[in-house]
């Protein structure tokens, strides 16, 4: 399944190419539909709000294109952070084993609430049960957020909160039909674009939220084994994205939701989660940690965050039960 690209985006792409090519030294492509100057400025403003790597240079009084694959910098991210507290202490590493591991070390040193750790490249990025997470430089956002105070038993909600925040940004900024696969994978057209792994801090009240978001990878930049199951924003939207803009937008969405969660509880969060969760109503296979696989239907997500699973009736089966851990695979409905 592919997302159709409209004429408007073709025009935007032409504008971006025209701006970017002098910088990159590539041959100028003929714009698909040249926009008039006034219209072009309006389109550029729209592009900036959609996370294209363009900005208005006030000194030169003109629009400029950036390289969507330039290196990140703490200063550049900080300059556009709209948050009240989240990410105000931002630590940037050109390379880290994993940002979650750095976060653990940070907690031991009692860093302030809302510290964010960003790495350009992770040498040992990992997912659940130490599954490898490929995190090359320049093409993704690999970061960890330290949130507190959340005791371990209540912290699992942050798993949903982060997934909802990333999903919202992808929908609103990138305009892509992102959905969630329980518990917290962000998917576009059946492919995973973002993985989230939480770890309880050793101080008993901090939670590390690790996020890996694929932004700019081309298909051939994923390992062969992942080419069918992983995707990036640029691949799906077929246009470049600016990583500092996306990071600022995600942190802003996380902050808003953490404040709402603390002030008014989880009802709004779980409602929003359910509205974005594509697992609900699907036929699924659940691979449980004990290597047993079961087939059935997910009828909903409980307030606890557990999926309500109705296994296919075999013997005494067929009764709904809540599942809190396991790998879910969405199955195609038979027609």
């Amino acid at each position: 399944m592919e997302i159709s690209i409209g004429e408007r985006q073709k025009t935007k792409m032409a504008i971006y190419e025209a701006l970017a090519n002098p910088l990159a030294g590539r041959p100028v492509a003929a714009p698909a539909a040249p926009a008039a100057p006034g219209e072009q400025a309006a389109l550029l403003a729209e592009m900036a709000a959609e996370g294209w790597p363009v900005y208005f240079d006030t000194a030169l009084a003109q629009w400029q294109a950036r390289d969507g694959r330039r290196l990140l910098s703490a200063a550049e991210i900080g300059a556009q952070l709209p948050t009240k507290w989240l990410g105000h202490n931002l630590l940037y590493y050109a390379e880290a084993d994993s940002t979650n591991l750095m976060a653990k070390l940070c907690i031991a040193q009692q860093v302030p609430r809302g510290t964010v750790i960003v790495a350009e490249k992770q040498t040992a990025g990992r997912g659940r049960l130490l599954r490898h997470w490929v995190s090359l430089p320049r093409v993704g956002l690999w970061f960890s957020v330290i949130l507190s105070p959340f005791a371990p038993a209540g912290a699992a909600l942050l798993s949903f909160l982060t997934a909802v925040a990333v999903c919202r940004v992808i929908r609103e900024v990138a305009g892509l039909p992102a959905v969630l696969k329980w518990p917290n994978d962000v998917m576009i057209c059946g492919r995973k674009v973002c993985g989230i792994l939480l770890e309880a801090g050793s101080d008993g009240q901090s939670v590390i939220v690790g996020v890996g978001l694929n932004v700019s990878q081309r298909r051939d930049e994923f390992p062969a084994a992942l080419q069918e199951t992983a995707t990036s924003l640029a691949l799906e939207a077929r246009r470049p994205f600016d990583r500092p803009f996306l990071l600022a937008a995600i942190l802003s969405q996380i902050e808003t939701r953490v404040e709402t969660l603390i002030d008014t509880g989880s009802a709004a969060l779980m409602d929003e989660y359910r509205s974005l969760c594509a697992t609900i109503g699907k036929r699924v296979r659940i691979d449980f940690p004990n290597s047993i696989a079961e087939y059935g239907v997910v009828s909903g997500v409980a307030d606890s965050g557990a999926v309500i699973f109705i296994p296919d009736a075999i013997g005494a089966g067929g009764r709904a039960r809540e599942v809190m851990a396991g790998d879910i695979t969405h199955l195609r409905t038979q027609t």
Binding site: G154, A156, I262
Partner: peptide, 12 residues
């Protein structure tokens, strides 16, 4: 509570 995880418990 975590089994039901009534997150209303998050309000102060």
């Amino acid at each position: 509570q975590a089994t039901a995880m009534t997150m209303s418990a998050l309000s102060p």
